[in-house]
């Protein structure tokens, strides 16, 4: 493939990575808004024990399953759409390369293009095969599910606030009458932090779904451009 088409394809793949990262950001933010709103009933019904002493357990038992139940299919759908869009770009480029117009192109124009054309062939057989391609498969569902399963509950955001709540009680800063309101407010903040950290902005060691998706899109783009 000539330099011009290589750079042109590189731009399209970069655009693809950016567009789907932004699609993921918008979608997951909306999911977060909805989850925070729908968790309100659980927070209101939470016992004092949940609010003061068992925040982590509350998040683990009540909120995390809800986050996962809603976010998982959304994330998978984003991945599927992104994979299909990348496959379409590759297929379109392969059509260019297969044409007779490149017969006179200089500098071994076919070399790189052949790789992409060869990689694109299985895509015509259906989307399911996209996952087997080194660059078209952004990530596998199984791997992603595994990651979520093992990381959501143990994130620092879940553990940190519980200790602070305990500290508030121990120093007598809260009077009993207001405990429920304040613990609910704190629980509400914890729920919000948990949802945001799970979906949009996690820590370095516990990346959110958005951070994982954008990293995967970025890696996939780099791999595709390297072919």
């Amino acid at each position: 493939m000539g330099l011009f088409n290589r750079i042109f394809l590189g731009h399209r793949i970069d655009d693809w990575a950016s567009e789907y990262s932004l699609v993921a950001a918008r979608t997951l933010n909306q999911v977060a808004v909805d989850l925070i709103a729908s968790a309100e009933q659980d927070v209101s019904n939470a016992s004092l024990k949940d609010g003061l002493l068992a925040q982590s357990a509350f998040l683990q038992n009540s909120i995390a399953p809800m986050v996962r139940e809603v976010a998982e299919p959304v994330a998978i759908e984003i991945l599927n759409e992104a994979n299909a869009a990348l496959a379409a770009i590759v297929e379109e480029q392969a059509v260019w390369v297969r044409g007779p117009d490149y017969a006179e192109q200089p500098e071994a124009a076919f070399d790189g293009a052949k790789d992409i054309a060869a990689a694109a062939v299985p895509l015509a057989a259906g989307f399911a095969t996209a996952a087997s391609l080194p660059f078209a498969a952004v990530t596998t569902t199984t791997a992603w599910l595994g990651l979520v399963t093992t990381t959501t509950i143990s994130w620092p955001v879940v553990l940190g606030g519980g200790a602070l709540a305990g500290l508030g009680i121990a120093t007598g800063l809260l009077n009993t009458a207001k405990i429920r309101d304040r613990t609910q407010a704190r629980l509400r903040d914890r729920v919000r932090s948990f949802v945001v950290a799970s979906l949009i902005g996690g820590g370095e060691n516990s990346p959110s779904i958005l951070q994982q998706l954008t990293a995967e899109f970025d890696h996939a783009a780099k791999r595709a451009k390297a072919l």
Partner: peptide, 28 residues
């Protein structure tokens, strides 16, 4: 690259709200 630049400019304290989405759209 568009997405990394946009996301770097969207303050995380607003994440999970409609304000964050507005900032995202504006930066985009």
């Amino acid at each position: 690259q568009l997405a990394p630049l946009v996301l770097a400019h969207a303050p995380m304290e607003n994440a999970g709200t409609s304000t964050w989405l507005e900032v995202l759209e504006q930066k985009t």
